[in-house]
């Protein structure tokens, strides 16, 4: 049995990627299973999905602790400890990244590959340039590096199961298959982020899970960050008023300040700023 973990953000198609992999594996004559892990179902929120492909009936359900491959639809998610946890020896980490990015946080003893699935998606008019739907392109790349499914079966699964732009999605899968680059240079590995300490919160004495939302760090949802040009700021405070997450506070002089750990990158502040001093820029 081969097991794949997909890490993405709501809107990128990670759940559908896992399901398409299952459909394609079935067309290859295998027994598949796929399963998403749901938290908040919202555009930009981290999403994990899983797929199993076997030649025998599958006797397990649920998440995958020891994957053979981890597919990272948004490389920002590699910043978080645990992204590649449990990956098997010689397993694959496949990352969506432009060719200019050559180094990734990756454990030793694994195989690393990258594909510019975002560019391929934009080339094929899948999603928008700020939120491209990268799943079919990266599935093509996965088929190439792991051989878990044939490209032919993947294309047939896309044709049968993708309701919108099936031809464009098939072409994106082919492009991902052609363009994926295995990275063999050891310098392509960056040290893994340290594991985040599990904060032992005492159980609340009251009946409900009373926890300040200050403790819930929602910045992992962000793919675009507001960049504020304070030299042109009129201190109208619109950004502060309209921010739905209180992620903009005001300093002593009344200038806005971004709360890095809580801003989800929704862009409302940029939208409402009268002199347009806020630009939404891609996360590094």
């Amino acid at each position: 049995m081969q097991e794949v973990r997909f890490l993405g953000r709501g809107g990128q198609g990670a759940v559908i990627a896992a399901e398409l992999l299952a459909q394609a594996a079935f067309l290859d004559g295998k027994i598949p299973q796929s399963f998403p892990f749901f938290g908040v179902e919202r555009r930009g929120a981290p999403v994990t999905a899983y797929a199993r492909v076997s030649s025998e009936p599958i006797e397990v359900r649920g998440s995958i602790a020891t994957p053979d491959a981890v597919v990272v639809l948004d490389r920002g998610l590699l910043r978080f400890a645990g992204a590649t946890d449990g990956l098997r020896e010689n397993g694959w980490v496949l990352v969506n990244a432009p060719a200019s990015v050559q180094a990734f946080a990756a454990p030793a003893g694994i195989r690393l590959a990258s594909v510019d699935a975002a560019r391929i998606a934009v080339d094929h008019h899948l999603g928008s340039p700020t939120l491209p739907i990268v799943n079919t392109a990266i599935l093509g790349a996965l088929a190439r590096v792991t051989g878990i499914v044939s490209l032919d079966a993947l294309e047939r699964a896309i044709a049968a199961a993708v309701p919108r732009k099936p031809q464009e999605n098939r072409a994106a899968a082919r492009a991902g298959f052609e363009e994926v680059r295995p990275l063999t240079d050891p310098r392509s590995r960056l040290p893994l982020p340290p594991p985040r300490p599990r904060r032992e919160l005492p159980l609340p004495e009251g009946p409900l899970a009373l926890r300040s939302s200050e403790e819930i760090l929602t910045a992992s949802w962000r793919s675009l960050r507001p960049q504020i040009d304070l030299s042109r700021c009129t201190r109208c405070n619109f950004c502060w008023k309209y921010c739905p997450d209180v992620a903009i506070t005001l300093d002593a002089e009344g200038y806005p300040k971004l709360e890095e750990e809580h801003c989800k990158g929704c862009g409302i502040c940029a939208e409402v700023c009268p002199p347009k001093t806020i630009a939404m820029v891609a996360e590094a």
């Binding site: 938290g39 981290p46 994990t48 998440s63 602790a65 978080f80 992204a83 819930i216 929602t218 992992s220």
Partner: peptide, 10 residues
């Protein structure tokens, strides 16, 4: 007891 994995994202 706390579960393995899944608490990987904020």
């Amino acid at each position: 007891e706390p579960h393995r994995e899944l608490e990987t994202h904020g």
